[in-house]
Design a protein around this nucleic acid. Structure first.
Lengths: 217, 217
DNA sequence: ATGCTAAACGGACTGCGGTCCGCATATTAT
DNA sequence: ATAATATGCGGACCGCAGTCCGTTTAGCAT
């Protein structure tokens, strides 16, 4: 199912899973979805989840590693679908369209995704240092990086992709929408402006000294 | 000394401070600096701080509101100096230089600042939703927004400033440097590329409906 | 000095994410 | 069937940020 196994459930190695473990995983996922339904993602605590599922707390962490890991697992189906669309789906999101169009579509989809899943998407962003090392994040990064290069952007694609990714951070997107009441379309439009400028601009001067070229205004 | 009082120490209103409160604040700040010296910013816990300073834990929170608030207070001198430089200091960071040059310089300074203070700067980023509503963050945002407008960037300056800000996020910068061993100069260079493209590019096609009114709640 | 009051104090308490480790059990080899 | 063993289990336990509230005290007015 999952193209890039975000988190299959078992801790690390992808070997066979004992039957009781499998049963408990299902129990936990079911309980988690119920709890989120009732209390929202923020209202889901690991103790409550364990209690609701009728298992010990240790079991929860054994399955999912962390709260963020659990949230990722809950999102893994949608995430896999998203990955499928931008890697193999129809243009402009998938291959076939010009890189810039794909970038624009990628951001728009990601924004919609984050806004759809809200707190859940936010909670899936591990608070740890390794937040950006999670497989899905690495994949998005590489995708953006690849599109930038395909679009002929020469300058440090890795860092440029990082900057663009940061724009799509769930925390920021939700802040803009929830706190500042920015309309979702405005977010997508701003993303479009951003990537368009990054891609279609001939690029900064090779930096001989501090001063740049004439700017308008 | 602080131009924009990041956090003067007293909880909110800037009125007179009782003598014992003032004494305890100094005690706490001294203890905090010592603790950071010894254990690093990550090793500073509120309990340890209280113990070291010889005050109750409640006092710590009364003074600084939260761990992030404490870190901001510890940074407030450097922060005020930074603010002074980009608002009133010499070009290219301060007024007088072309907007693009000021933007480039702003990013470079901010990157250096974050790398200098490392964990401290990271910890000063409150984990709460209000992370971006802290006075200093609002000021940076407005500064970037203003420079964008001065540079003739028409498209949704508020959101564009937000995107650019996100690139300077301490978490990301430190991740790039610490985990991926990106050289600091590469960060500054990538920032330069980014803002140059954003500013000097004619921009994406104008949208059918030109409704964009930057605003904050 | 004395009494009053608002402010500050301190530390027990809560709820959280996450860890640990002795015990139970599914699985496999014999 | 039985024994061996790796895997999973549970819940007590930890350290943490942040809160609460009864107690103390600084500052002031008399």
């Amino acid at each position: 199912m999952s193209l890039i196994p975000i988190r299959s459930g078992s801790p690390l190695g992808g070997e066979a899973e004992r039957s009781d473990a499998a049963r408990n995983r299902e129990l936990l996922l079911k309980a988690a979805r119920e709890l989120i339904e009732e209390c929202g993602a923020d209202g889901l605590t690991m103790d409550r989840l364990a209690g609701r599922a009728g298992v010990g707390k240790g079991t929860v962490f054994r399955r999912f590693g962390s709260r963020a890991g659990l949230m990722m697992t809950l999102l893994s189906d949608s995430e896999a679908a998203f990955q499928g669309r931008f890697m193999f789906g129809p243009p402009p999101l998938g291959p076939g369209a010009p890189p810039l169009d794909r970038l624009v579509a990628f951001g728009a989809e990601r924004i919609a995704y984050v806004l759809e899943f809200g707190e859940l998407a936010r909670a899936a962003d591990a608070s740890a240092y390794n937040r950006y090392d999670v497989p899905a994040a690495v994949l998005w990064h590489r995708h953006i990086e690849m599109l930038l290069q395909a679009a002929g952007v020469t300058a440090d694609p890795w860092l440029m992709a990082m900057s663009l990714s940061s724009t799509l951070d769930p925390e920021r997107l939700l802040y803009a929408v929830r706190v500042h009441h920015v309309a979702p379309e405005r977010l997508a439009e701003s993303w479009r402006e951003l990537v368009t400028r990054v891609v279609s601009c001939p690029g900064g001067v090779p930096r001989p000294d501090g001063v740049s070229q004439p700017d308008e205004g």
